[in-house]
Amino acid sequence: MSRDYDDRDSIFEVEEEIERGGRGGGGGGRGGPGGRRMHRRKICRFCIEKVDLIDFKDVKLLQSYIPERGKILPRRISGACATHQRMLSEAIKRARNIALLPYATD
């Protein structure tokens, strides 16, 4: 189950790594002491882009928040803030109802 998320996670990870590189921050963020992952603050994409409304018709956007299995990408991975995650999940559920997005895929 966590497998679908893992590769998604890695995609986000890579993006962040690039950002860090651009900013010239310290390298080697991965793997803190004892093999535990370092905490890195993820920033809500929607807050940065100042999105006030997430439309259920915007399939392209929503699609990037459902991994292969069709589940909604959790906040701990997407990094979305509570408000935007709520909007997002609402929109995804509406889109599912009208068959724009799948309820489940395998």
Binding site: D52, L53, F56, R94, N97, I98, A99
Partner: peptide
């Protein structure tokens, strides 16, 4: 299938 969504409140909030 059909779906009805009330949008005025959300739009107001966005505004």
């Amino acid at each position: 299938r059909y779906i009805t969504v009330r949008v005025d409140e959300d739009r107001q909030r966005a505004e």
